[in-house]
Design a protein around this nucleic acid. Structure first.
Lengths: 136, 136
DNA sequence: ATTTACCCTATAGATTTTATAGGAATTACA
DNA sequence: TGTAATTCCTATAAAATCTATAGGGTAAAT
């Protein structure tokens, strides 16, 4: 299941991406328009800024804005920051690899092979979609 | 992330599928071979029996066995029983549909469209794999 | 100065996941 | 007929994760 954090994050990014200009948008505005708890959204936007997706401006007239053009932002990168690993098991994760402690070998693990296929098919979707594709 | 329940369930099903004959296999044997807590596995196998994937036999020489041939068991069906919805959001789920309470409309939801694509690509994997494909 | 708005950390509440406990019911077999 | 083996079932506890909320700090604009 997609976490609320990811869902809210995607909605906020899309909201920013659909702005005419690149002027900062306030948290309060995004929160209200997208039905998101403002404080929760605040922490999400903060993490998106720290990971280089958003810029921010303090003080009056401040807010958040996109750093790159929407069509340059791959869904793979967004999803990894918001949701974490794209793979369903750590042992098939490209960016968050971990060995499973309950498996003697990955070569003979039935789950491993299946989840590799799922990962690849999901990756293909994320690699072929940018933030721009989320704008209706 | 794949839950342990699903992972263990898949391993257990694969273990049963790779048996030569269809004689019942005891929980204890599967638990030991696959490094799974026996009591936890017990509840998983129970749910797989109640959903028609496994048969069971009580008493001495009892255990669990597959009802169908491994190549007749689609991964879609297994995953829905073990893990639940294949979709990452309820509003794009075929079998567990639910409206999102924070979205005014699905047609204008950026998350909805993306998750529809992810669901379809994942479904394609599960529809093209059976339990037999998990056997190494 | 004062107001506006982001910055940051800690923590609490809710939910889900991951088991564990303990006994009841059933079967095989001596 | 008795006994050991094995699944069946419900309840509940422990742990982890998710979803916020609280409250003050910091920088910028006017």
């Amino acid at each position: 299941m997609l976490s609320k954090k990811t869902k809210y994050g995607l909605k906020a990014l899309t909201y920013l991406a659909s702005q005419k200009d690149k002027k900062p948008v306030q948290i309060a505005e995004i929160a209200k328009q997208e039905n998101i708890s403002q404080k929760f959204l605040e922490s999400i936007l903060l993490s998106l800024r720290k990971t280089g997706f958003l810029g921010s401006k303090k003080g009056k007239g401040g807010g958040y804005y996109l750093i790159k053009n929407p069509n340059e932002v791959l869904m793979t990168d967004i999803m990894r920051v918001l949701e974490g690993p794209i793979a369903m098991v750590p042992c098939v994760s490209l960016n968050f690899y971990e060995k499973c402690d309950d498996c003697p070998s990955e070569d003979t693990c039935s789950v491993h092979m299946l989840m590799l296929k799922v990962r690849d098919s999901t990756l293909e979707v994320y690699r072929n979609n940018t933030l721009a594709d989320l704008i209706i």
